[in-house]
Simulated scan of single mutants.
Amino acid sequence: MIRFGVIGTNWITEQFIQAALESEEFALSAVYSRTEERAKDFAAKYDIPNLYTDLESMAASDQVDAVYIASPNSFHAKQTIVFLNHGKHVLCEKPIASNAAETKAMIAASQMNNVLLMEALKSTLMPNFRAVVDNLHKIGTVRRYFASYCQYSSRYDAFKQGNILNAFNPAYSNGSLMDLGIYCLYPLVTLFGKPNSVQAAGVLLSSGVDGEGSMVMSYKDMDAVIQHSKISNSYLPAEIQGENGTIVIDKINQPGSVRIHYKDGSVEDITVPQVKPSMHYEVKEFIELMKSGRVESTVNSHANSLAAMEVIDETRRQIGLVFAADLK
């Protein structure tokens, strides 16, 4: 059994726990919260034996083998490095850090301590993304990648009333690009590597974070177009366009249906049945990597996490999006 601790007591942590419990090798052993009351409530809900309000104490505990970090983005790097330096394996929620400098420091700590670090970006580890990878050759030379993730945030209504919650607060390294855009960007980098150039546009809100944006990226023989938003909705699927056909993915953030539309008009359904919760597959990958003694995934690799963050940094530079973490 792998004894996991969790940092963060929000809805995403609850989804993680529910998905992870599908694995017979997962054991929930500890929870950290900044407040003792919240830690006690969460521990009682999930029957967690150990609770902490001090990060160093949790990192030093012999009751924890690995940790899932789902705190606000601005805390990811500092918390991750504390656990890596104590020899604990870390599954860190996306985006892995606030910027590339933090990402590099996290990777260095993983390698120095010979412990696993993986970004918890679920979609690239789901069965239907694997189906995309396995069938990509069928569409011939790829000429364009398009992905859209635009979802009106319930927190935006509060924002318009003057209540700036974490999702729209630059102190926590948040906003549309970090929350939703990364779901479009990470699969691109995983499939095709880091683009040669980026052209970005975006709408900055009064708090200083981006509400929506778009990116056009170039490669040697193809381009990529990404759009993301937390202040409007989109219902477009993602596409990978090749000379012989186009792969159509229903949802880039959670692929559930994948089809190839060939240029002769025929359609091939390459969808793979998915029987587990969407976050189960990242847990499965992480546990398998731990058991094999590896410090990184070949899919959600250190290189892919860094490349995605470098593109995000350049995008933020172009649209004028600055986080408090950049000034440290």
Rank of each mutant, 00 (worst) to 15 (best):
Leu21Phe: 09
Tyr46Gln: 05
Ser61Trp: 00
Asn128Gly: 05
Thr103Glu: 04
Ala77Asn: 08
Glu24Arg: 01
Leu55Glu: 01
Asp62Lys: 05
Ser98Gln: 09
Ala43Arg: 03
His86Val: 00
Thr13Ala: 14
Thr35Tyr: 10
Lys40His: 08
Ala97Tyr: 06
Ala101Asn: 13
Tyr52Val: 07
Ser61Ala: 05
Leu84Glu: 03
Glu14Tyr: 09
Ala27Leu: 06
Ser61His: 03
Ala97Arg: 02
Ala59Leu: 02
Leu55Thr: 04
Ser33Phe: 09
Asn128Trp: 03
Lys88Trp: 00
Thr80Tyr: 08
Ala30Gly: 03
Ser57Leu: 12
Ala43Pro: 02
Phe129Lys: 01
Glu22Asp: 12
Asp54Ile: 09
Ala101Ser: 15
Ile12Tyr: 14
Arg130Lys: 15
Ala39Arg: 04
Leu125Met: 11
Met112Ser: 15
Tyr52Cys: 04
Arg130Tyr: 12
His86Leu: 07
Asp47Met: 14
Asp54Arg: 10
Asp65His: 08
Ala120Asp: 07
Thr53Ala: 07
Cys92Asn: 11
Val31Ile: 10
Glu119Tyr: 05
Leu117Lys: 01
Glu36Val: 13
Met58Pro: 00
Ile17Asp: 00
Met118Lys: 11
Lys104Ala: 15
Ser98Arg: 00
Lys40Arg: 13
Ala100Met: 12
Met118Asn: 07
His76Ile: 10
Thr80Pro: 08
Ser33Ile: 07
Ser74Pro: 15
Pro49Leu: 05
Leu121Glu: 07
Arg34Asn: 08
Ala43Asn: 08
Val31Met: 11
Met112Tyr: 15
Arg38Pro: 06
Glu37Ile: 08
Met106Asp: 03
Tyr32Arg: 06
Thr13His: 06
Ala105Ile: 15
Ile69Thr: 02
Met112His: 15
Ser29Arg: 00
Cys92Ala: 12
Tyr52Trp: 07
Ala43Trp: 07
Ser29Val: 02
Asn114Ser: 13
Val82Lys: 05
Arg38Phe: 11
Gln15Val: 08
Lys94Leu: 04
Leu121Val: 15
